[in-house]
Design a protein around this nucleic acid. Sequence first.
DNA 1: CTGTTAGCGCATTCAC
DNA 2: GTGAATGCGCTAACAG
Lengths: 336, 336
Amino acid sequence: MVTIYDIAKQANVSAMTVSKVINNTGKISEKTRARIKKIMEEMNYVPNSMARSLVLQETKMLSLLIPDITNPFFTTVARGAEDAAMRLGYKLLFGNSDESLTKEKEYVDMVLSTRVDGVLFSAASDESAPHLQTLRTHRIPFVLLDRAVPGIDCDTVSGDSREGARKLVEHLIGLGHRRIAMVNGSLAVSTARERLAGYREALKLSDIPEDDSLVLEMNYKHFTDETALRRLLTMPQPPTAVFAGNNFLAVGLIRKLLEFGVRVPEEMSVVCFDDLGASVIDPFFTVVSQPAYQFGAMGIQLLIERIKGVTTPEWKKIVLPSELIVRGSSGKPSAI
Amino acid sequence: MVTIYDIAKQANVSAMTVSKVINNTGKISEKTRARIKKIMEEMNYVPNSMARSLVLQETKMLSLLIPDITNPFFTTVARGAEDAAMRLGYKLLFGNSDESLTKEKEYVDMVLSTRVDGVLFSAASDESAPHLQTLRTHRIPFVLLDRAVPGIDCDTVSGDSREGARKLVEHLIGLGHRRIAMVNGSLAVSTARERLAGYREALKLSDIPEDDSLVLEMNYKHFTDETALRRLLTMPQPPTAVFAGNNFLAVGLIRKLLEFGVRVPEEMSVVCFDDLGASVIDPFFTVVSQPAYQFGAMGIQLLIERIKGVTTPEWKKIVLPSELIVRGSSGKPSAI
DNA sequence: CTGTTAGCGCATTCAC
DNA sequence: GTGAATGCGCTAACAG
């Protein structure tokens, strides 16, 4: 490996001079600067960022932890985060917790030993609190993304899940639905709770009685509980519409419905949170779409502001707007 | 930041003893070992991997460069790579070149200064060769993933694009198609060339004359050339089937076809390389599916073998099998 | 303008 | 069993 000393020797200067050329600090004559630069080129010199970080006490690396790298919502977040980080001179270390606390913990340990300057953190669940406490203990700044964690007060970039859910359910109610089910992620995740709250709020506002047997709790990764769905469909008064807590649940749900021969939207309307990305031929779901790219970009921006201490001491809570997009998966209830 | 010196002081031993406890090297009495471990716990000690890397001359970090983080094929690759890396004790630094050589170059520079132990590299195009030469100059081992790069001989994990393409086109021919178009990625990408070769091979084997005006070149990220498609559809003898070079091209293509009122598969069969992932409600495309997860996992495994030097000096070329999955997007040509 | 000294946190080598 | 010296590659603070 070529070091500044190799360059220095070649150029008949001290290592310090080379260092100054690299960092554009101090005063160096144009002559020697040019000479040194040329030699660096010739010798294929690349600074060792480990050594640099060690003395500077900063790595210029941020890490992004997302719970599901296969979900287009989060990959879009990742792109936004990466672009912003790159633009602001930071590298991004991705991590994928897979909605698993175990993986999340491993990842936090890694982050700690890597001494990244900050973490953009989308928590697996409320149980992630200890992990965040660990980060705090080690004075690693973090910004919570998409999901809040009870007991952790910090900077935040998220959407308004409650309002989004309400818009979606009100859309269904507006179409004439009265029996509306919800298929949700785990209630240990803040957005799932918020979406449930929004769902209830919408029902209440329209004086529709709540029926807890219409609410199914699964997880955001997969639609898991087929029997629960079957139970729903065979109720005396089955629902005419379902609100899915996220995109993947909606896909899982609709696959099952197709399997059971239930037509969408004729026999069952389906709406959900978050769009499905570029893989989809014919956008079909009525959704509340969130600006995923912005989530990532603003998260990184906020994180860097916090790292540099240029922002106010109070925690910033950025809430990004969501948008109701009505498409083919929702329609009027069939007039049986 | 807590260092081994802080621990040492607290434990009334030298820093060296602490280091030995951490690495399980040398002989330390059980007593002191236990005592030191306890103190490390209490003080929340986390080893500084920068300092460690600096002296050990290895980072235990690998990097994965993919050309499109929004494509489910590559996110699945990423999951496979991550799992394998984690399992083998390495961290993974993701990078997304966005099919752009500029971004790829920036990324390579970053990789160099980070002193990762190796790179799993999915090249943006043939023009990536200089970037790989740079890695080689700096003696950073790499494994090429999915795409070959002319002029670069190295370890490789990929699929058999030519055979996959042939299977797909033969499937179409078997259904009775004779006018078969191809919508391809850039020919500066090896898989695109291979897929084109497979397409031609299949035609030749069935004595179907080639017609270059049936072959469209775009890029793997998007279906871009709407007018070319229009030209295809208004030919005297328009194609009855299209082979798309990858999943995203197929999606773009079919969206346009829908827009133009061309029904699939009744009026046009469509087949493609690579599946579309979990976002899809009703898997519709007839595809050649590649084991993306394995691509990532085996790539990392091979890379680590190379790093450790436990493998043979000759380059290993791992070719993973692909599978033809016939679904609804392909059917017999309409009997006009 | 340029060079010297010291130290970031850790592990290898070799004494004790 | 344990510790002192040394250096990985780099830069801040100062000296010349």
